[in-house]
Simulated scan of single mutants.
Amino acid sequence: MPIYMDFHDLPDGVSAKHVAEMHQADLEIEHKYNCRGLTYWCDEKRQTAFCLIEAPNQQAVLDLHQNSHGAVPQRIIEVNDTIVESFLGRIEDPKKSKNTSLNIINDPAFRTIMVVKLKHKVLRTSSYDILNAAIRGYTTSIKTLTSEFHGRLVRQESNTFLISFDSVTDAMQCGVKIQEVHNCVITPDLEFKIGISGGVPVAKSEGLFEDTIKISDYLSDIVNGDFSITEDVRDLYEGENQNISIPENKAIRVLSSTDVDFMTHLMAYTESAWSQTTTNVNDFEESLGFSKSKLYRTMMHLVGKPPNIFLREYRLNKALGLLEKQRSNISEIAYQTGFSSPAYFSKCFHKKYGILPSNMYTS
């Protein structure tokens, strides 16, 4: 049977004890709806609760809540239990505390999400072995530090790491240590970037923590700087550490909510239009509602690149991924990634990576 996670926006005054009573009410009649309540998370501070329920469909979840306690969730998504455990650490109720008849769980589902990315700046064949050895070393260090700072490695794809932390402080300290490891080793042909944001498992998107993951991914991908966090993460860090500021000497860039909104809109449009050969800077201006000069200034401030260079390098990065899989010929890849001709694509690729795309098949 599918597993669902729902989101409840709790009214003022509702405590963890009240949520525990609601959970117990669900368990008492769940058999009537062919459901099985697995566990829940309650955050008194943020006034939110999230239930994890095995059920035949979403309507069964709604009917169960409606008839057990009347608190209908604002949102329900289907989830994978393994992924839930990777992010949140459990998929069942924790053991009851001693000497209590009601299992009160005041355990927030809010998580701090870190994305670490390692990218080749150039593709010199002579340096492949050295870079790959360095990447293996970094991978070991990232996994070791993740465990040391109580994080959970949710996913590793290629040279991208997605990590979940219960504590903002643990995430920040882990990020600083990972950055220090990179700074101790000279790898000029390797780009090493970290992005950290925080959020809840069920929001606007369909996937678990999808909105938060996207922000962390963008921070570690397009923002000008090696270590970027959101303003919310900074504030939470200072709140956890008695208003002690983040380490200023670590070159950590903090993005305001305005910057995050722009970045999100920029990437939403880019991801929808990058493969079309007709897409150009004018389209970005129209989609984002910015004048040419304002878009240029904003892009240089946030990304460190003008719009035309940003779009070209985004396409080149997509092309690199296709070339590494070696499933299409160069002409096909050129057109698939929005370039007007294979010749122009090869020229741009060589300028950025130092080799022609045709050499990717022989390296």
Rank of each mutant, 00 (worst) to 15 (best):
H23L: 02
F110K: 12
M299W: 07
Y33Q: 08
N103H: 05
S328A: 10
Q47E: 10
I77L: 11
S291K: 13
S363I: 14
N241F: 05
G89V: 00
L356R: 09
N57E: 15
G239C: 15
H301I: 01
P56S: 15
E157H: 11
M1V: 11
G13Q: 10
N243R: 05
E44A: 13
D217N: 05
Q336C: 04
V281N: 10
T270F: 12
V202E: 00
S272F: 12
V168S: 03
N224S: 13
K32Y: 12
E313R: 09
T258A: 11
M299G: 06
M172F: 03
S158G: 15
E78M: 11
I213E: 00
G175D: 02
G289T: 13
V202L: 01
K177W: 02
F310R: 02
S167K: 08
F209P: 00
I186P: 06
I333L: 04
N241H: 05
N249S: 14
D6V: 06
V303L: 14
G198P: 01
M360E: 08
M300Q: 14
K325Y: 08
L316S: 00
P306R: 15
C35T: 06
E210P: 01
M267P: 02
I142N: 00
T278K: 15
T337W: 05
G151K: 05
L288P: 03
G195E: 05
K143W: 10
K32E: 14
T337F: 04
I83A: 10
T82R: 15
R75Q: 14
G89I: 00
K32W: 11
H150F: 11
D6C: 14
Q179F: 15
T160N: 06
S340T: 12
R155Y: 04
E238I: 03
I135Y: 10
D170T: 01
Y128C: 05
Q326K: 07
F50W: 06
S126G: 07
S86Q: 12
G151D: 06
A268K: 07
C174M: 09
P56Q: 15
V79D: 03
G151E: 07
I355V: 14
P357C: 10
H350G: 05
E85V: 11
H150R: 13
L162Y: 01
K347G: 04
S147K: 06
E44I: 09
M299C: 14
T277K: 14
S97V: 06
K177S: 08
S86A: 15
K98F: 09
E313Q: 12
F262D: 08
R315Q: 06
P342E: 12
P2Y: 05
E85R: 12
V233A: 09
S340F: 09
S68P: 00
P11D: 12
